[in-house]
Design a binder for these strands. Structure first.
Length: 908
RNA sequence: GCGGAGGUUGCCGAGUCAGGUCAAAGGCGACAGACUCAAGAUCUGUUUCCGCAGGGGUUCGCCGGUUCGAAUCCGGCCCUCCGCACCA
């Protein structure tokens, strides 16, 4: 991987001379990141805590690194900054890992051997692996390693406030949270549909399903319509209940078995397989017996709503494993039914009831148009759903759209007891263990009811006042507020806090992590063994207590009130519709408005060599590897400069070496400037300093807006460019750097803190740069003039080059003729459309060149100042004078006449 | 499908909210030159087309519209990426 090592040995020495560990120890020793209440303005910044099931990769590093830039910048600006972190250990995956290790699953064992080996010597691996049979050991092991990794990255985290989501005192707070939600009526119990495995007797998530990440499985709602026969009802399911009027017959599969079940006193028939699955959706249903298919086929069945009877035909295309295994046939509006009937030689007249653009849809046309039967069927379905209108003469729904009618008919059928909902997976799916995935409706599922309108209104109002970076996520968040409904908040297994009102349930791992940043503020003031109850938390977090001071928690209360709410939370877009919405809404429900979250910054995803990072691809680059190989500052600089917060960051070798080049440049110039003792005054040095001042102004502005990349392009690339320009102008970059080193190192310290500390000390500044303060920067008019005039001169140089190129003259001498005061006055008038001027001949020229004329620059002064520099850079003699009457060409303000003298270049 | 973001000159990526100063920042790559025995590194210049005087032509997904004037505003179309409920 390291193909530069041979050619850059000198620079390697440069990088390795920064002893990152040493500086981390200095920070520790001086406790500069431990933050306590003070009289300074506070700034609380957080990042969602990591889940401790394994080592972190570069993707995790990005958000924390960005947060650290901001934390360090705020400190420079004089804020009392708190940047805490903790560890998320609740949920099912860690338990599942232990489970697999206990069972000796070879894949898991290999993976965790590899993970452990990244941190521990070989002889210890098996022992640690053995300890992983206990879930808590897995979590603790990796939490411990993450601390080490993060320290190695130089994060300015206050480690005194760290806690884990499974700590007893934290659990007490979660209990407090849930009892509060309960008293507010936000906690509900109800039934809930989930994907489920009968064999594993468990709800299954995307990760549990084979190809679940690439080919999603969702739950679809079918309407099972009851057709009344002599002894029982047939349950025929459909996505299109509005077509019930056009039914001609019912299909069952002759090769499959059917069963009779009891549903609230009704005798209902569905396939044997459906029957087994349905019992997971409806607890009260009971199987009565199996049926002989002849029993079903012989009778006639009455449609609900319309007085009509239809027959049942066998059709082996009907899938008994899909919904009820009974389907009704609508040949007028289903290509498949039309074909089935035709193939079976059954002659039934089509009933048609839907029009698109005043024309009754024709199954035959779709059949002709699409070669594939499925495609024809689906297209017809879609066309009718989006643009279909029901015929005027149809009862109940005539003239209405298909979309409206579907809900109306479904509603009526269910009310009349002639239909029920049958839930089905959107595709056939199996778990990774190979068992079948079905839909189950869980009873007594606990929910947080985010649909409460009052709660939503408050949330929307607050979201409008929050700061989102980038701002478009605000709109996104408002949509989510609108969309969010009940969310299941408890599970049967996993680590975490037991639901206080029902100890059978464990609070789901996203729901237990919504207000935890509040706990950072109090964590050091609540010892592990303290007795905690709801009154304690009411006292610390709210105004809602009996007024008596609780001595023991007084300090915690003060710290909470000082620090809370979160000023800035850095996260990534997948968190929008789950963690972030919970985070915002739970704060709004539980805390006083002044403690609600303020700022949210959403970082783009991290990709590796142009492709998405995923464990299965094996392209996850571990954070530890990166630090070991490149050092913290290199990685941090990469994160800062390689792409903007909002766009994705691609971690790849090529860009790494490019960034490294820049980093080495910084090291080099800082190193070589060290020996400079004096500072020579010259135009170019002055210009450099003025420009540096401008960069500092821009840097501050951009950091305030959290445009981190732009800020560092300014303070790294622009400054380095200026230095090389300075060198060309004959100035000394070393002297210049010596002069600006203090300010530059402060600005750089947010991104490359170790490097900045190293040179801060060598340059003889007091204390630590991480502890220094950044002043206010502003350009004075002299500095502005220096910069503007130089830009003007650069324009002239570009013009000279352009002329040289076109004429093939190798310029030796240049005469620059400037506009005199008469021209300037005339031009000013003409721009204002006042044509009463002294030299009429310039009117046309001014009009034509209007957008290239600049009035504000003192051209004479610019040339006085920079003529020498231009002469050096262009290697030609520069003369300048004002316009004289009789000159062939007329200069305009900002557009002097350039007379180039030299030899014609022979080649062309 | 629903919701969100986006399509810019060889590539990455600013600019679009507040239309003109935008042939369009910055980085990378490429080319030429300087340095060197040579390569790398570094530095200088060029990098849409035309031009023997700093100028002109044609460009910002596609098609239309508004305007004296559009990369920027409006409408339609095509394409890409992200999120979509028990997964952390």
């Amino acid at each position: 991987m390291d193909n530069h090592s041979s050619s850059c040995s000198f620079n390697y020495r440069m990088i390795s001379m920064i002893d990152e560990k040493f500086w981390q120890e200095q920070w520790d020793k001086e406790s500069i990141f431990i933050s306590r209440k003070s009289n300074k303005e506070k700034f609380l910044i957080t990042v969602p805590w990591p889940y401790t099931s394994g080592p972190l990769h570069v993707g995790h590093g990005r958000t924390y690194t960005i947060a650290d830039f901001i934390a360090r910048y705020r400190r420079l600006k004089g804020y009392n900054v708190l940047f805490p972190m903790g560890f998320h250990e609740s949920g099912t995956p860690i338990e599942a890992i232990s489970d697999k290790i206990r069972k000796g699953d070879p894949k898991t064992l290999d993976l965790y051997r590899k993970y452990i080996s990244e941190y521990e010597s070989d002889e210890k691996i098996e022992e640690i692996l053995e300890s992983f049979k206990q879930p808590q050991n897995v979590a603790d092991f990796f939490a411990d390693k993450i601390v080490k990794d993060f320290k190695a990255l130089g994060y300015s985290i206050d480690w005194t406030r760290t806690f884990r989501s499974v700590d007893e005192r934290y659990k007490k707070m979660v209990e407090w949270q849930f009892r509060k939600l309960d008293t507010m009526g936000y906690l509900k119990k109800g039934s809930h549909a989930v994907l489920f495995s009968m064999e594993e007797k468990n709800a299954v998530g995307e990760d549990d399903i084979e190809d679940g990440d690439t080919n999603k499985v969702s739950i679809e709602e079918f309407t099972a319509v009851l057709f009344k026969g002599k002894d029982f009802y047939l349950a025929a399911s459909s996505l299109r209940p509005e077509t019930i009027y056009a039914i001609t017959n019912i299909w069952i599969n002759p090769d499959s078995k059917y069963s009779l079940i009891d549903m609230d006193g009704k005798r209902v028939v569905m396939s044997e397989d459906a029957c087994e699955r349905f019992l997971y959706q409806n607890e009260s249903a009971q199987k009565i017996r199996d049926l002989d298919n002849a029993e079903i086929l012989q009778g006639e069945y009455e449609l609900p709503l319309f007085n009509r009877k239809v027959k049942v035909f066998p059709n082996n295309k009907i899938d008994p494993e899909h919904t009820t295994g009974i389907v009704y046939s609508v040949p007028g509006h289903s290509v498949k039914d039309y074909v089935y009937l035709k193939d079976a030689g059954i002659n039934i007249e089509n009933i048609r009831m839907i029009q698109i653009k005043d024309e009754t849809t024709s199954v035959e046309k779709y059949l002709e148009k699409y070669a594939d039967l499925d495609e024809a069927n689906q297209t017809l379905y879609r066309d009718e759903y989006y643009s279909g209108i029901i015929d005027e003469n149809i009862p109940l729904i005539g003239g209405k759209t298909v979309r409206e009618s579907r809900d109306i008919i479904k509603q009526i059928l269910i009310e009349q007891g002639r239909a029920f909902i049958f839930l089905e997976t959107s595709r056939k799916a199996r778990t990774r263990n190979g068992s079948r995935v079905i839909v189950s409706v869980l009873r007594d599922q606990w929910f947080i009811d985010y649909s409460n309108p009052e709660w939503k209104r408050e949330t929307a109002r607050h979201v409008n006042n929050m700061k989102f970076v980038p701002d478009f996520y605000r709109k996104n968040m408002l949509d989510i507020v609108d969309w969010i409904a009940e969310r299941a908040c408890a599970r049967r297994r996993g680590l975490g806090t037991k639901l206080p009102m029902d100890r059978e349930w464990v609070i789901e791992s996203l729901s237990d992590s919504t207000i935890y940043p509040a706990f950072y503020t109090v964590s050091p003031f609540i010892p592990e063994d303290t007795e905690l109850n709801d009154a304690t938390f009411d006292y610390i977090f709210t105004e809602n207590y009996d007024g008596k001071v609780m001595e023991k928690f007084q300090k915690a209360k003060e710290e909470f009130e000082y620090w809370y709410g979160v000023d800035q939370r850095i996260t990534s877009s997948p968190h929008m519709s789950n963690h972030l919405i919970f985070y915002i809404m739970n704060h709004i429900a539980l805390f006083n408005e002044k403690y609600w979250p303020e700022g949210i910054t959403i970082a783009g995803t991290v990709i590796s060599n142009g492709t998405k990072i995923s464990k299965s691809k094996g392209n996850a680059v571990s954070l530890l590897d990166v630090v070991r190989k490149y050092g913290a500052d290199m990685f941090r600089m990469y994160v800062a400069v390689n792409s903007d917060i909002s766009s994705s960051l691609d971690w790849n070798e090529r860009d790494i070496s490019i960034i490294r080049g820049k980093y080495e440049e910084i090291l080099n110039i800082l190193e070589t400037s060290l020996s400079q003792k004096e500072y020579g005054e010259s135009v170019s040095q002055e210009l450099f300093q003025a420009r540096f001042m401008k960069h500092m102004v821009n840097f501050n502005e951009k950091m305030e807006k959290l445009s981190i990349r732009d800020a560092y392009v300014e303070i790294i690339y622009e400054v380095l460019n200026d230095l090389s320009e300075l060198k060309n102008m004959g100035g000394s970059p070393e002297m210049a750097v010596r002069k600006i080193a203090g300010d530059w190192l402060k600005a750089l310290s947010c991104v490359i803190p170790h490097t900045a500390e190293h040179f801060w000390k060598l340059y003889g500044f007091e204390g630590l740069v991480s502890n220094s303060k950044l002043g206010h920067y502003e350009l004075n008019s002299e500095e502005k003039g220096l910069i503007e005039q130089w830009e003007y001169c650069k324009g002239i140089m570009a013009d000279i080059r352009s002329i040289e190129k076109v004429t093939h003259i190798d310029g030796k001498e240049v005469e620059i003729v400037l506009a005199d005061h008469i021209i300037r006055e005339d031009t000013e008038k003409i721009i204002k459309n006042n044509f009463n001027v002294k030299r009429k001949e310039i009117i046309q020229a001014v009009k034509k060149m209007q957008n290239k004329i600049t009035m504000g620059i003192d051209e004479r002064k610019a040339l006085e100042r920079y003529a020498g520099v231009i002469e050096k850079l262009m290697n030609m003699q520069i003369d300048y004078r004002e316009y004289r009457e009789g000159d062939k060409k007329l200069p305009l303000p900002g557009r002097p006449v350039i007379n180039l003298k030299g030899e014609r270049n022979g080649n062309n």
